[in-house]
Nucleic acid binder design. Structure first.
Lengths: 331, 331
DNA sequence: CTGTTAGCGCCTTCAT
DNA sequence: ATGAAGGCGCTAACAG
């Protein structure tokens, strides 16, 4: 405990505590001479403002909460980790800390954490929600407590958000498959109701709307390795010559099945997956993917929440970032 | 801002603020009847204790800092993420929050963050250090501020720590390769001076001590994909029939090279890598790995730091967890 | 078994 | 251009 307080600094500098406070916070004019003396005294004593006291007095915590939904064995870990990095690095510059919390893709837990990270603890919350309908969250959200939704934007939400254009990303992927000459292109996805999942499917249906019996080419399973592994043979039997895999966990199962059974990619079947995870580069052949700028999303969300903190009541901002198709050897 | 304070609760319950405080903190006996009244009043008013005030008064923050070293493109992301999960879930049970911070494997940054997360902000720090010599950190560490080192334990450190027995993990891996009939077993590692890296190499040298010209079978590169990719052909040319890859990032490069060049695993070369990352299961053939219990490490570290907080001055505890060899199809 | 009260360290209004 | 002083909400010593 550095038990040096503002009073000690004031005494050493021969000024009042008010002046010291104002020097620290640049909150009113102080003559250069006095300011220098104060700064000197601060250094000499190695003064560090007391966080709790400051927070008590000013009702600001200089802390932001980030709630993310990751399963224990989920491949999306590194995705949210990248987001967290972006958030943390950006906020650090402005003197904010980041408290992280994991909802494990469980709405109950998410709501619990939302309450835990209330305005006593944080100045705002960045949330990758599990929820598909924003009204469900209303009860636990504090009016006017800054909130930025990230990655997923549920129905009924009109506040600040940062997300990725999943719809467009999907369309690009399908177009690419078509350009490569694939004709019977299927969709493999998970039965999640989160916004990113539904938008991917929307995009697929839209660009493939001319295709007869399109619904037969859409495979929906659980977001698990196992489910993907079971889904793969069905896809093959359906005579598809390409699949767009909308869920990364599902993709692990499908890809592994294909490799194991010697089904050659990209000849027998073309593949595009969502998310540029490391393993998509390491497998042979390396996979064509829709890359989501996770880190940048974090940066954006951090900036948004800072803006919101500094101007409650401003018009909400919905930032949408574009994904990038990375062409590799699976198409 | 829930502007209900202890005083409001006290008034509604018809008791003093002291009694309310003691009910909340269970810090002295209160008759069941009064306690009930207080609890009721708290609920009725939806009272939440003010974190800052409490922290100011009690000099406890109920917050723990976790500093981890992850590179932007590093495969170890999910490893540290798992650790973070273990930490967070455990501490949450005891009402603690976790502030995370990333040193990006940079000692300067690490030291900066150590200072940032001082005792004004946290009640203790869990640190996966980048540092190989603990004395370098002494300057920025506050005496008596609880500290638990995790994963890596530098020289000169004698405090609390949780780590994994890298030495033993390596020995198991080599034994397994020998059992499978491999004879010319090499070592591929990164030039890191952190404790985990050196212990793996120590283990290798120990169990292979009978092997002539052993040093020629040790390949050290940078912890990058590229470095691994360049290292792979060298390993092959050396006539090795198996490699133990001690660094996961390096492994990505080596494995990809082998796959690309049609070098068959496990026939032409056997492979064991450190860390049970998802991609090691997805590639074909799936890789035999030394699995580190990351989540459990986090749990242990959380428990250790709580113990330390509640009894400064107790004898330090060094917890060492055992890794597990997971046999798959690359050996 | 419970109440009274003095601060924790800081910011900020009011005063000069 | 600077000081004096009250109080943010809570805990814990002291008092009964």
């Amino acid at each position: 405990m550095s038990n040096i307080k503002i009073k000690d600094v004031a005494e050493l500098a021969g000024v009042s505590t008010a002046t010291v406070s104002h020097v620290i916070n640049k909150t009113r004019y102080v003559s250069e001479k006095t300011a220098d003396r104060v700064l000197h005294a601060m250094q000499q004593l190695n003064y560090r403002p007391n966080h709790a006291a400051r927070s008590l007095r000013s009702t600001k915590t200089y802390t932001i909460g980030f709630i993310m939904p990751v399963h224990k064995e989920d491949t999306s870990k590194s995705f949210f980790m990248s987001i967290a990095e972006g958030i943390e690095e950006t906020l650090k510059k402005y003197g904010y800390h980041v408290i992280v919390s994991n909802s494990k893709e469980d709405l109950e837990l998410e709501m619990e954490q939302l309450q835990l990270l209330n305005d006593q603890i944080t100045d705002g919350i960045i949330l990758a929600t599990t929820c598909n309908d924003f009204h469900k969250l209303k009860d636990v959200l504090m009016e006017d407590h800054p909130l930025v939704l990230i990655d997923r934007v549920p129905n009924g939400y009109a506040g600040d958000s940062v997300s990725i254009d999943s719809y467009e990303g999907t369309i690009q992927a399908i177009k690419h498959l078509k350009n490569r000459g694939y004709r019977r292109i299927g969709y493999a996805g998970a039965d999640l109701s989160i916004s990113t999942a539904t938008k991917r499917l929307d995009g697929f249906r839209h660009i493939q709307q001319e295709v007869p019996n399109l619904e037969d080419m859409i495979f929906i399973g659980k977001p698990t390795y196992k489910s993907g592994y079971k889904m793969a043979p069905q896809i093959i039997q359906h005579g598809l010559d390409a699949v767009f895999i909308a869920n990364n966990v599902l993709a692990t199962g499908i890809v592994h099945y294909l490799a194991e059974h010697g089904i050659s990619i990209p000849e027998e079947i073309g593949i595009v997956t969502f998310d540029n995870f490391e393993w998509t580069q390491i497998v042979s052949p390396s996979l064509t993917v829709v890359d989501q700028p996770a880190y940048e999303m974090g940066v954006e969300a951090a900036n948004l929440i800072l803006d919101r903190i500094h101007s409650i009541g401003k018009k909400p901002v919905q930032t949408v970032l574009q994904p990038t198709l990375i062409k590799r050897n699976s198409t």
